[in-house]
């Protein structure tokens, strides 16, 4: 029974590692400039965690195999060095391992969150609501008009509550249901929640950030590959949470300008 148990642990450990090694289910390829660091951090962690996982499970299996068949006359042996070795090993091996991960990870995190967006980053506002994203481009004046919550009305498609007749800054604002961005240009995404908590997650872009009602946040990123990607919500926001999405189109600079003109005409 013990030997069977040991073999089972061994098989499960190896079996679990196979899909990881073969990349059967992998994260979608990165299309951002900051994602490389995150991906490196991920694969470093995967190597360390994978080794720890395999070593400890195999050791557990081996010990179960080895020490379950002793006879009554056998004497108890003590692990060489006893608990002291173990404490030292834990501090040195695991301590340095996790601290190294932590320290290296700071860079990947700081790269996303602790650097300001560059001055010429393109500002785009995204508003999350149950259960859709809407986007606002500031138009030629580069300024977003003020928001009037009492004017928000989905029936007239005034999703942001902007007053285009009275507010000068709002006149040229462009509201869209799809997010289009020019490739290789930094985007400064201003995030606003209309009702409850949501999240902005584009796996390919290596961006995930919650929308916090009452607290407008921002993230910045640069996409490097033209294509159409899904923006999904990862913060439980109600019955349509799984249907809350929008598309992100990364376009060439020319196509982006054309798209924006077309959207402006539709306002």
């Amino acid at each position: 029974m013990a030997k069977l148990f040991a073999v089972t642990i061994l098989l499960i450990a190896i079996g679990s590692a196979i899909p990881i090694l073969r990349h059967t289910w992998d994260a979608p390829p990165d299309i951002s400039t900051h994602g490389t660091l995150i991906d490196e951090q991920m694969s470093d962690t995967m190597v360390e965690a994978g080794i720890s996982f395999l070593v400890s499970q195999i050791l557990l299996a081996f010990f179960i195999w080895k020490f379950s068949s002793s006879r009554p006359s056998d004497k108890i042996k003590t692990f060489p060095g006893g608990a002291k070795t173990i404490v030292w090993a834990a501090f040195l091996l695991v301590g340095t391992e996790v601290l190294a991960l932590g320290v290296f990870g700071v860079k990947a995190w700081a790269n996303v969150y602790l650097t300001p967006p560059s001055a010429n980053a393109l500002p785009i506002q995204v508003q999350a609501e149950q259960f859709a994203f809407y986007f606002r481009y500031p138009g030629p004046d580069g300024t977003f008009g003020p928001v009037h919550p009492e004017m928000i009305n989905g029936a007239t498609e005034n999703f942001f509550g902007i007053d285009q007749t009275n507010d000068a800054d709002s006149k040229d604002d462009i509201v869209t249901a799809e997010m289009a961005i020019p490739v290789n240009r930094e985007i400064h995404l201003l995030m606003h929640a209309k009702d409850v908590g949501h999240s902005f997650f584009v796996p390919e872009l290596r961006v995930q950030q919650d929308f916090v009602p009452g607290l407008d946040l921002s993230v910045h990123f640069t996409a490097t590959r033209i294509g159409r990607y899904e923006i999904v919500c990862t913060q439980l926001c109600g019955l349509g949470h799984y249907n809350m999405k929008a598309y992100l189109s990364v376009l060439s600079a020319q196509n982006y300008d054309d798209w924006l003109k077309k959207q402006a005409a539709l306002q």
Partner: peptide, 26 residues
């Protein structure tokens, strides 16, 4: 013990904010 090891090791990933960008809420 086996479960605790497996479940604990995945904590290595989630403890790191940079990786959490990809794994949070998944």
């Amino acid at each position: 013990i086996s479960m605790f090891i497996t479940g604990g090791i995945s904590g290595f990933f989630l403890a790191q904010p940079s990786i959490d960008i990809m794994l949070h809420a998944t």
